[in-house]
Nucleic acid binder design. Structure first.
Lengths: 353, 353
DNA sequence: TAGCGTAGTCGAATCGATTCGATCTCGCGC
DNA sequence: GCGCGAGATCGAATCGATTCGACTACGCTA
C-alpha cells in the first residue's frame, strides 16, 4: 500500500490482500471462514485488515454476488404513524422480528402509499411480508413474483403464489355476535374499521365492496347473525373514531337504539364505551360493548369483552414462514390462526325495556 | 434470446438490450433517462423489457455501482415491541418517515441488542439514525464513520462526528420541578425510565452512572431543584412499571411520604396515578403527578400535567438532517428542541398537613 | 517408490448494472 | 463544399466482493 491511495479511497478487500501479501480470494476466505486457510495466513489477513481500518466486506458488493441482502421487507398500509399506533400491528411486527432475529435479518419498512411505490419494488429485499395490505399492492406482488422474491401475506390479499397467514376474522365475528345473541340482544350496531384508503367515516352502505379485507370479513361475520345491523365506518383504529361511530349509532329513536355495539377493534371499543358513558348510559347494562383484538389497554378501567387474537404468534408465524421460504421449503398455506372469546364486564343481558 | 435461457434465469438488462438490438449502455440510458436517446430506441427497449418481463434494474447491482442503496437505517434500543409501545418513539419514527418519504427511501429497522450486532454494521444503508441509543453502539458508530455513512443521533450518544438532535431534557425537568416547587411541594418522589440495559427496577443510588442519557438528564434536572428526592427506576416505559415505582415511593412513613411524584414519561405517570388512586388518595390534591412527553393517552380520564415535547418535529428534523447529509451539506449540530409545560389537573398545591 | 487425496493458495470469471470516453452520423453555418 | 458541434450509440472499465476450477506441495497408503 502506498501512502497516497489511503487518503481518498476506503480500503477494499483487494487492499487488504495486497497488504497481507495474499490473493483476494484467499483474503475473502480468511474473512468469511468459508474454506480452508492456514492459521498463519488468516492472522496475517486480519492484521492487515485491522491496520488498514477495513471493517468487513461491503454489503452492496456482497449482496450482489450472493444474491441475498439479509433484509426482509415489511409492507404496511398507510402511514407509519397509524401502523404503529395500532397495537396489533406493533405486536405482530415484534413477533416477526423475534422469529427473524436469530438470523440477524433487518426489517425494511415500506408503505404501500403512492410515493412509496417507487421504493417498494426497488428495494433489495430477500422476502416480503405484507401486513394487512389491501389489493392495491397487487402490482408489486407481481414484480416480486418475477424476481423470485417470496411474499408472505398476513391478513392481506390472497393469491396462489404467496404464503398466507390468516385469522378467522369472520368466524370470530360470528362467535362474538352469538355471544350477544345469547344475552338476548336484538338491536345491534357495528363500529367498523376503515373500509378503503382515503374513505371518510360514515354509515356503511355496501358491505361487499369493502376493500380492506379485515373490515369486510369481520363485518360479514357479524352480519351472519345480525343481517340488518347498522354499521358505521371509521378511518383510523383509535378511540376518537370509535367514539364518533358510537355517537352516530346511538343517535336514533329510543325504540331503535342498539342495546349492544360490536366494535371491530379494542381501540374502537374504548371510544365506544366513552361515548356510551357520555350519554349517561351504563356499559354492560344499558349498552353492551364487545371488541376485537384482545390487547391490554393501559389505564383502561373496564374488563372489555372481546375476541382475543394471537397477534404475536401471527407475526412469529410470518417470520418463520419467511425463514422457511428462504431455505427453499414451501410452508403449507394458509397458516391459520383463531380467536378466542374473552367475556368481560362490558357485555350483559339485554335491558328489559 | 433463445428459448432455453428464459427458463431458469431472470432477465437482465443485457437480455433486454439484446432483444431490442441495442447495446447494454443504451438500454441503461433508455431505462434511467440519464442521457440522450432517440424516442424510437427508447420505445424499442421498453417494449423488449415488457415482453421479457424485466422490471427494472436489480437493486443490488444498482446500489453497488452507484454507492447508494436508498435505505436509511434506524437503530432502536432494545426490542422492537417496547420501541413501538413507546408512543414517543412511534411518533418520532413517523416524523422521520414523512421527512424522508418524498425521496422514497425505506427505513431499515435495526436494534442494538447483541444479536443485531451482526446486522447493524452489515446492512447496506446510506445513513443511520440512532433513536435514543445508549453508548453501547459506540463501536458501530466508528464503523459507520470509516464507511463514510452519516449518522444522526436523536437524544443518543454525543460525538463530534455525528449530527445530533437534542431535547432539553434537563432544562425541561427543571421547569417541571419548579412548577411543583411553586405549588409548595417539598417532598417529591421520582419515577425514572430505565437506567441501563438489563437493569432491574429499583431505587436509584448513583445518578451519574446512568447509561441511558434521557433518564440521566431528566433525573439531574429534577435534582437541581430537589437534590434529595428519592428515585425509583423502571425497566420499560409502561403504566405497570410506573405503578410499581409509585407504590414503592409512597410506601414510607406518612411524614416522609412524597406529596408529589415526577414521572419521567407520561406512560409512567398513568401508572403512578393508578397507584395513587389505589391507595385511596386523590390525584392533584393528596398527591400531585407530573409527567413528561405530552402524548395523548387514549381513554385516559385525567388532564395530565406534563412537559410537552415536539416528538414529531424531532423526527422530522432527523429525517431532514439525513437528507442534507446525503446531499453533502452538514447541518449545524446539535439541532435543539425544547419542551413546554402543560398544566393540567393532576398537580395542585401541597396539602396542608 | 509410485500413486492418490487433500489442505492451501491463486487467477479469473461472475453478479448486473452504471458511466466514461470514443466513435459515428447527421445538420447547419460560413 | 468543408468543418464543426451536438445527438445517438457503443464498447469497455468499474463497483467490491464471492466462488469455481486449477495448480502446488505435502503426507499417507499400498
Amino acid at each position: 500500500m502506498t501512502a497516497s491511495d489511503q487518503h481518498t479511497r476506503r480500503p477494499t478487500l483487494a487492499d487488504v490482500a495486497k497488504a497481507a501479501g495474499v490473493s483476494v480470494s484467499t483474503a475473502s476466505i480468511a474473512f468469511s471462514g468459508s474454506g480452508p486457510v492456514s492459521d498463519a495466513t488468516r492472522e496475517r489477513v486480519l492484521a492487515a485488515a485491522a491496520s488498514l481500518g477495513y471493517d468487513g466486506p461491503d454489503p452492496r458488493a456482497r449482496s450482489l454476488r450472493q444474491g441475498r441482502s439479509g433484509v426482509i421487507g415489511v409492507v404496511l398500509e398507510g402511514s407509519l404513524l397509524y401502523a404503529f399506533r395500532d397495537p396489533v400491528t406493533s405486536i405482530t411486527l415484534d413477533g416477526v422480528a423475534t422469529a427473524l432475529g436469530p438470523q440477524g435479518a433487518g426489517l425494511l419498512l415500506l408503505t404501500d402509499s403512492g410515493e412509496g411505490a417507487a421504493t417498494i419494488d426497488t428495494a433489495a429485499v430477500d422476502a416480503v411480508i405484507l401486513l394487512g395490505c389491501s389489493t392495491r399492492v397487487d402490482h408489486s406482488i407481481e414484480v416480486f413474483g418475477r424476481r423470485d422474491i417470496p411474499v408472505v401475506s398476513v391478513e392481506g390479499p390472497s393469491r396462489p403464489e404467496l404464503v398466507e397467514v390468516t385469522l378467522d376474522n369472520r368466524a370470530a365475528s360470528v362467535v362474538a355476535a352469538r355471544h350477544l345473541q345469547s344475552l338476548g340482544h336484538e338491536l345491534v350496531g357495528i363500529a367498523t374499521l376503515g373500509i378503503a384508503d382515503g374513505h371518510e367515516a360514515g354509515p356503511v352502505t355496501d358491505d361487499v365492496a369493502i376493500a380492506v379485507s379485515v373490515t369486510r370479513e369481520r363485518l360479514l361475520g357479524t352480519r351472519e347473525v345480525y343481517p340488518d345491523a347498522p354499521a358505521y365506518s371509521s378511518v383510523h383504529n383509535t378511540p376518537e373514531d370509535g367514539r364518533r361511530a358510537a355517537l352516530a349509532l346511538l343517535d336514533v329513536a329510543a325504540s331503535q337504539r342498539p342495546t349492544a355495539i360490536v366494535a371491530q377493534a379494542d381501540l374502537l371499543a374504548v371510544g365506544v364505551i366513552q361515548a356510551v358513558e357520555e350519554l349517561g348510559l351504563v356499559v354492560g347494562v344499558d349498552v353492551s360493548v364487545i371488541g376485537f383484538d384482545g390487547i391490554r389497554i393501559d389505564g383502561f378501567a373496564h374488563d372489555l369483552t372481546t375476541m382475543v387474537q394471537p397477534a404475536s404468534a401471527k407475526g412469529h408465524a410470518a417470520g418463520a414462514a419467511v425463514t422457511a421460504l428462504l431455505a427453499g421449503e414451501r410452508p403449507d398455506t394458509p397458516i391459520a390462526f383463531t380467536c378466542e372469546l374473552h367475556v368481560g364486564s362490558t357485555t350483559g343481558p339485554v335491558p328489559s325495556s
